Simulated scan of single mutants.
Amino acid sequence: MTRPVYVHDLHGLAEHARSIRAALPRRVELLYAVKANPDPGVLRALAPVVDGFEAASRGELRRLAEVLPGRVPAAYAGPGKTGEDLAAALAAPVSRIHVESPAELRRLGALAVASGRPARVLLRVNLPVDAPGASLVMGGGPSPFGMDPADAVECARRPPAGIEVRGIHAHLASGLDAPLAGAIAAAVARWSTAEVGAVEVDVGGGMAVDYADPTARFDWARYGQELADVLDAHPHLRLRIEPGRSVTAYCGAYLTEVIDVKRSYGEWFVVVAGGTHHLRTPAAKGHAQPFRVHRRQSAAGPRTEGPVTVVGQLCTPKDVLSRSSTAGPIGVGDVLEFAMAGAYAWNISHRDFLLHEPPLFRIGDPQEVAADWVAGATLS
């Protein structure tokens, strides 16, 4: 039996990224949020298309330096930055550092003065936001992310020595459709220019990804028009976005083989190699990961009938990858191809639980890899 394998379609990823770039006004900078998927192949595929990268840790800074030497990260973000984190951002050097609090700004200023490297920053602000339909709202209430508007205004008006405040960063919600994302961008731009005289605004990411419908896509053309309207209202503003999941989710698949099928109290369970310690996304988001079945004609034993629950090899009832009433018969030896595994998948998984072998990684078309596997090819 071959270990589970991640397959990244880098050609498809580059095409998708180019379509996003083409839908946006040229004055909108497109950054890729590395946290979504820091795979080296993914970073290399995106490098010619995006305007830069947003890193949220020293580890991500190191990964970018290793994979794309000489490419200066466009932004360094994340809460709870240590002195070592801030020093690393100054040394990289990062184009913009997103500052989360007045205390962080003071520490960064002291480091900037000591190093002789001035720090150009965006202040992350926790603005009130009306986001009906968003899957996650991070603005308008008590939050560890960003600073209150009044604190941001004070920091912008009286920055410490060594600091140049260029503008505002506001990632306020996730799971946004294009009209709502555009409305939030417009509100952030209005507040930023009126209250702190910002010349740069980063409105974050948060574009919706629908795991229940793998064919659905965020309306980038509509969003591009919404951002064009923002720029028309603020002709001197530099506007920036930093999507992650909506860029890479569709380029990755997790392939694994069925180990066992069985009934328990009348319900069918499909047990696969691997599990949520390889692909944490369905457990983290509480959804059924979409999958297709590549049937092996020589599969032995019974095949499922009716609805199934697909589980992994972990000693916990939470190790559930998917549930389906439409997958059709599944038997031992079949290969399941879990789609939309290109973001927040392997990189957020609790990979050391039970110390199973890690998955393999391949570049190519997931369906072709699955077909080869079913036909008897060994993936090594």
Score class of each variant (00 low, 15 high):
S325G: 12
A87S: 14
S380W: 03
C315A: 14
L61Y: 09
P73L: 07
G275E: 03
V270H: 08
Y76T: 00
E104W: 12
L360C: 06
G342K: 01
V272K: 05
R44A: 12
R245Y: 00
A194P: 01
Y265G: 01
G376I: 00
P282E: 08
A221H: 10
D260N: 15
K318S: 14
A233R: 15
P73R: 12
P118Y: 04
P359Y: 01
Y344I: 07
R296Y: 06
P329K: 03
V72Q: 15
E15K: 12
K262M: 11
P179D: 10
A45L: 12
S298G: 12
G52M: 04
H287V: 15
C155S: 15
P358G: 13
Q225G: 09
H169L: 12
L321R: 09
G52Y: 01
D39K: 08
H277C: 12
S174N: 11
G133K: 08
A343K: 05
L355Y: 10
A189N: 05
G266P: 06
E200W: 15
G146F: 07
R63D: 12
V153N: 07
L10T: 01
A74V: 00
I97R: 10
W191M: 04
V7C: 08
A112E: 06
I97G: 04
P329W: 08
P25I: 03
K318C: 08
H171F: 13
Y250L: 13
G83S: 10
S298I: 03
R71N: 01
A233I: 11
E200C: 13
P132T: 01
I348S: 09
E154T: 12
T276V: 15
L108N: 08
L123I: 09
V125P: 03
A233W: 04
V201I: 09
E242R: 10
A345V: 00
E15L: 13
P307F: 06
L255V: 05
V28Q: 07
S349F: 05
S135Q: 14
D51H: 13
G244T: 01
V125T: 14
A249G: 00
Y250Q: 14
M1F: 09
R295Y: 02
P142A: 15
S325N: 11
D232G: 06
C251S: 15
V272P: 05
G12M: 08
V310D: 09
A181N: 08
A77N: 13
R124V: 03
V129M: 09
H287R: 02
A208D: 12
L379Y: 10
V201F: 02
A33T: 07
A47T: 00
P359E: 03
Y344C: 06
L172W: 07
D352V: 13
V201E: 04
Y344Q: 13
H287L: 15
